[in-house]
């Protein structure tokens, strides 16, 4: 039995106003799996994946990510160790505006992993051409379209050779005609066997790429199914309601 990459055990997180973001969440993410998390806004799906790399803390429960166990008050050292091995792609890209595309990608390998510059740059160029944007290497984030910026962000998180990639609504901030170029890049990654947890509303992507779909509502996991079951014949009433709303 291979250990899962993420295993969450009864995670609870409550915000100060009594809002429950995570309500007793237990789940696993297996190696080489693509897990899509869906749910209405405010259902806690972003909070959930942000706990996976320590951007959010939780009030009770236990979490194991890439073999490192953290509790409610984790040590900085452990959290950083997790972050070095888990990449994250954000809705708003969050590239560093004062650095060129190439510098954005090589900063972490050079400063965190202590790779030498030439090696890091070679790897970065390889990743950029994999994303189809090697010509933009010398430009600055602001000169790129949203879709290109998001592909740079993916390349940046790949540059540290992560064992797991987290995507927090990666296409929600994009113009509709730019969505596919990002999804295509993600499809390729999935084919290459990258373990991914993706929060998204992109039904076609989920249908085609996901191994499992997790549906969340008000901080709870309502249903975990294969995409085939989830989209055609969801087990839970609430899942079906949600699907009716997003698929017209």
């Amino acid at each position: 039995m291979i250990n899962p990459i993420v295993s969450a055990n009864e995670l609870v997180k409550t915000y100060s106003k009594g809002l429950i973001a995570l309500n007793n969440i237990s789940m696993v993410v297996n190696k080489k799996e693509v897990l899509v998390v869906m749910g209405p806004s405010g259902s806690g799906k972003s909070t959930l994946i942000r706990t996976f790399n320590g951007l959010e803390s939780f009030d009770s429960g236990e979490l194991e990510v890439v073999g490192i166990t953290i509790g409610t008050d984790p040590e900085d050292r452990k959290v950083r160790e997790i972050r070095k091995r888990v990449g994250m792609v954000f809705q708003q890209f969050n590239l560093f505006p004062h650095l060129s595309i190439l510098e954005n990608i090589t900063l972490a390998p050079i400063q965190v992993q202590r790779k030498n510059r030439i090696e890091a740059e070679d790897h970065a160029m390889e990743l950029l051409s994999q994303m189809g944007i090697e010509k933009q290497a010398k430009k600055y984030p602001i000169q790129l379209s949203g879709g290109e910026q998001q592909r740079v962000a993916i390349a940046r998180s790949l540059a540290v050779n992560p064992e797991l990639l987290l995507f927090d609504e990666p296409t929600s901030a994009l113009d509709p005609e730019r969505v596919n170029e990002v999804l295509d890049a993600m499809r390729k990654l999935a084919q290459d066997g990258m373990t991914m947890v993706v929060v998204t509303h992109e039904v076609s992507f989920a249908k085609e790429v996901a191994d499992r779909v997790v549906f969340m509502d008000s901080g709870k996991i309502i249903e975990t199914s294969s995409p085939n079951v989830f989209f055609n014949n969801a087990k839970e009433e609430r899942s079906r309601k949600f699907l009716n709303q997003i698929i017209k």
Binding site: L55, R80, G87, M88, F90, N94, L95, Q111, V112, A153
Partner: peptide
């Protein structure tokens, strides 16, 4: 703040975030 989150999720420590991300900007 989201830029700092991005830096954190790449594994930078506080000093590195200050030196490479915050100060130049």
């Amino acid at each position: 703040k989201s830029q700092i989150e991005a830096a954190k999720s790449l594994g930078f420590n506080t000093f590195q975030i200050t030196r490479f991300i915050l100060l130049p900007q």
